[in-house]
Design a protein around this nucleic acid. Structure first.
Lengths: 204, 204
DNA sequence: AACTATACGGAAAGACTTTCCGGTTAGCAA
DNA sequence: TTGCTAACCGGAAAGTCTTTCCGTATAGTT
């Protein structure tokens, strides 16, 4: 074997830094894919994404050899953004408000992924690792906000971060003929249910 | 409009009886699709299904104008079979055994639908009505078995049929590199948890 | 037995993904 | 700055799958 000594990078990452134009194109492709997936779903034609990014399909397929690679990259990007937002929100807000804002952002994220959640559970091995990544990154992020809000008494204890992530994701999924506003309303409802002093009467 | 007075049939059902050969072909197609979906997933090529059924693709597309129509038909067939099996099982077995056998059959059904659950939640309006159909048929069927088993004291109360349907479906979904046996084991575990005095004796 | 509405099969058209390759360019060295 | 070359780019072409179309065959009727 050739002695290609690379620093400790994750598998799949090229050993050599990308050329500047290639870096630009990868960024443009990710951004374009995010936009197209959000409006046209994850099954949108590759050409549409390439056009929006201002590159040819050849370029798209060089950086993301399979459609699923692009989908994965966009998904991980979104998960990372959500996870990384938690500390900043916690630093800038009261615990309750931080939690609320984070959930709002998370709801938007999930909402832009119609059809992606389906792909995740499709059994396609290409997506096998994503649910794990999702939980690994998001659960600690939400848990920190949740614990803080519980600690100051704004939110009642007894609901795990994991359950809440799932609940919100499911809440945002099914209903046809409903826009993102619906999801936000339902999630707000759920959050109210977590508060102390919620105004609605609990079921018997 | 032409006065095409048909008896009260559901929309989409042809008013006139199919010719005998056409009826045979529809049956063969449904059976072939069931088999192919179970082994190759719902994204298997239409030609594969047509070949197995011994017909041309033209025939397939005449009876099921879109791929999704075939998927829907197979799914509803399976749901119906599950739902209709409940009374017979209840009549021929002790309540606890009937519940156990029904859950086993349901587990197999869910297991043959890898990728279909994904399609259901894909946001594709073609499948919009299916989750509702699923619950409408299966919840009463399971509820009757569950209630009977609770009534004779074999199963503890406190778990709804709806929750159990969801739980089993989720249990059977994710894990890669695991066969149907895994699902059966997990579901058996879940069922043991519902029993009074669970003994953890492995099933035959 | 003849007739006709209905159904059949498979070729062809369309759409999308993925591969390939000749031309172009960023980054480096002198 | 100039020249060199590895890396990159774009789009045409190939491969795959869905869906349409139409000439031929047949079930059911008179």
């Amino acid at each position: 074997m050739t002695g290609n000594a690379a620093p400790g990078v994750s598998p799949g990452v090229p050993q050599r830094a990308l050329r500047a134009d290639a870096q630009r194109n990868v960024g443009a492709l990710l951004e374009a894919a995010r936009a197209v997936f959000a409006t046209a779903g994850v099954d949108a034609p590759a050409k549409e994404i390439a056009d929006l990014a201002g590159v040819g399909v050849g370029t798209l397929y060089r950086h993301f050899p399979q459609r699923s690679d692009l989908v994965k990259a966009v998904f991980q990007h979104g998960v990372d953004a959500c996870a990384d937002a938690a500390p900043a929100l916690a630093a800038a807000n009261e615990p309750g408000a931080a939690l609320e804002q984070w959930l709002r952002q998370y709801t938007v994220f999930v909402g832009t992924k119609r059809g992606l959640a389906a792909a995740l559970h499709s059994g396609d091995p290409a997506y096998g690792a994503l649910p794990g990544y999702f939980m690994r990154r998001l659960e600690p992020a939400l848990a920190s906000l949740l614990d803080a809000a519980i600690a100051v008494g704004e939110i009642r204890a007894g609901t795990s971060a994991r359950d809440l992530l799932h609940a919100v994701a499911n809440l945002c999924m099914p209903v046809p003929d409903e826009g993102p506003a619906y999801s936000q309303r339902m999630v707000a409802l759920l959050l109210d249910g977590l508060r102390f002093g919620a105004t609605s009467q609990p079921p018997p």
